[in-house]
Design a protein around this nucleic acid. Structure first.
Lengths: 189, 189
DNA sequence: TCAAAAGTGTTTATAATACACCCATGG
DNA sequence: CCATGGGTGTATTATAAACACTTTTGA
């Protein structure tokens, strides 16, 4: 890292240089690991980040690098597996109470495509029907006037949707212990 | 920090030495700040932690240190205000989906006492009635057979409660996008 | 006209909030 | 017996999951 650089921007520079990942749509610091023996060769401290890129991009990567499905990761050195797991948990949580999905989806997409992205992140099946309802109710996505052509096997054309905002918004801040509804809010309902 | 020490244990050592805070019930890493000019004197990187202690403790602290209500903090140097705010948000969120309150409450307590702790953390009013219901339903707290004596002004004695577990448990992992209920789980209901 | 895929209508379940009311105590 | 707080019963509201059914397309 350069002496006059922040950790985040340093990371962006390295990713662009090494793996051609110039279109990181969302970057979030995960955690700093300081275990004395995380690397047996020498004392290191590592600050990990989560970087999200659109699922339709396929940036060229060097021969010693590869894309992996989280459930099929090769064995990793040191505490890397634990860090990856921690990152996935963070993403899983954020998908449920923010609009962070915008960073994983292309500009426009069908609900089925978005469902696949969510399934990959969450690790369990979810229905396109309910995904659509939830995201529409929260006004996280909205329908465009376009539709995707059906596959050659036939089928109804799928409406294309887009994310309403492409910056992080917390849409469900209070799961419980909500502050009492103020009179202002009551009037607006 | 010692060369052979983790960040967390180093922190514990410093807090015990400087502010007599030996009974930290919960410690969690918050974030690492690396802004180039966070300290104008020299380039520093700071990893911040959130430490929770029981609200009934009142450890002795040196003259240059003081307990402050979050809403009445004195002006702070560098990016400290922003870090403190970030820590409070973290605590607020964790109180809503984990049992982390155990780290802020004494062994036994009345619902009214616990309510005051929650109010201080969340920053808005919550009713003792609803707090009790939610925490009981989630099995985060349970009633003891004891009761606290009423104040001299009279009143019904308050049941004393305790936290069921005193280690971190995530009680509400899936706000939405829950995995489909398996047949196993269905049988057990 | 049938299969495939998308989307809607409607029911059900769950969890939290709101609030009226009852209980137990000290003076 | 009344003021003071604690606690319970119950209605309301909000949100999401489940699933049957309808729509729109290609062959």
């Amino acid at each position: 890292m350069g002496d006059h650089e922040r950790l985040g921007s340093s990371l962006g520079r390295h990713m662009a240089a090494k793996v051609d990942l110039t279109d990181v749509a969302y970057l979030e610091q995960l955690e700093t690991r300081s275990d004395v023996d995380r690397d047996p060769r020498e004392r290191t401290i590592a600050t990990a980040y989560v970087a999200l890129v659109s699922a339709n991009l396929n940036p060229s990567i060097p021969a010693d690098t590869a894309w992996c499905h989280v459930d099929e990761l090769p064995p990793t050195a040191f505490d890397h597996a634990s860090i990856i797991n921690s990152g996935r948990e963070r993403l899983r949580a954020k998908l449920t109470y923010t609009n962070v999905g915008y960073a994983l989806a292309p500009e426009t997409f069908t609900i089925a495509e978005l469902r696949d992205v969510y399934v990959a992140c969450l690790g369990h099946a979810i229905s396109a029907t309910n995904l659509q309802r939830v995201l529409l109710r929260r006004k996280i996505i909205k329908a465009t006037n376009d539709a995707a052509p059906p596959p050659s096997s036939g089928g109804r054309p799928a409406t294309l949707y887009r994310f309403a905002e492409r910056t992080l918004l917390v849409t469900d801040p209070f799961a419980v212990f909500r502050p009492p509804r103020s009179l202002d809010q009551e009037r607006s309902t």
